[in-house]
Amino acid sequence: MSAATETVSGGSARTARIVIYALLLVLAAVYLLPLYVMLTTSLKPLDEIRAGDMLALPRQPSLASWYKAWGEACIGVTCEGIKGYFWNSIKMVVPAVAISTILGALNGYVLTKWRFPGHKLVFGLMLFACFIPFQAVLIPMARVLGIFGLANSTAGLIFVHVVYGLGFTTLFFRNYYEAFPDELVKAAMIDGAGFFKIFWRILLPNSGPIIVVTVIYQFTNIWNDFLFGVSFSSGGASPMTVALNNLVSSSTGVKEYNVDMAAAVFAALPTLLVYIVAGRYFVRGLMAGAVKG
């Protein structure tokens, strides 16, 4: 509705616009500040950090802390950096995102195009599952993972993320397929396509945007998860976020702020990258998760 400023207006409009731009620039600087500080700190040597000014640019930028964070920093008793944990996260995220997205797509398809009595109840129960505080399932899940030998394993975390991601992926696909014309499905039915053929040949090829949204949403959520990671894994099997927290909050030895920040950059990098490349879809995913319907 940007019509508000479209009209002919007097001389004060110019001042108003300068104020608006100034406000926005200041705000943008404030939002960027923590990222800036994180990046510059990671590029500074420790004595420069101790002596100097947080906001100053590094005098001699160096990637030394990045190498150290990646390959040498001590987390717990091992000193091999965060690289192992980074790969743990990748190995966890990729299958978890793939499985939950595929299941969500099938669920959304059934819940919109093959409705049966009670479909609303089924959807309602799956939807509410998105919103429960995970604290309410933490203890039983820990027990069950233990019983099946999945505790402290990537497989266990994949399973947990699929289970608690299903609600959202189903919601995304259901809302998308809800708007997908029923007549196309009817036409395909008359043309002789069956349940899976219709899904594979008609719906899926037209689901590009929602697949991107779902994958990004799931990727971000699972990569950024901390609670499940810290509850169901420990030591060398932990995901990136848990390792980062262990690194930063460990109180042994000299506090290497630059290494901490470098590790934080590594933890932030994948999701930031996704956000930069596909921000539009990222926002759409957030909205879809927020404004149901």
Partner: peptide, 15 residues
């Protein structure tokens, strides 16, 4: 304005 939402809370907390 939006990029912080892409970060993990752990990263935010650390920063």
């Amino acid at each position: 304005f939006l990029y912080p939402m892409a970060l993990s809370f752990v990263v935010t907390g650390t920063a």
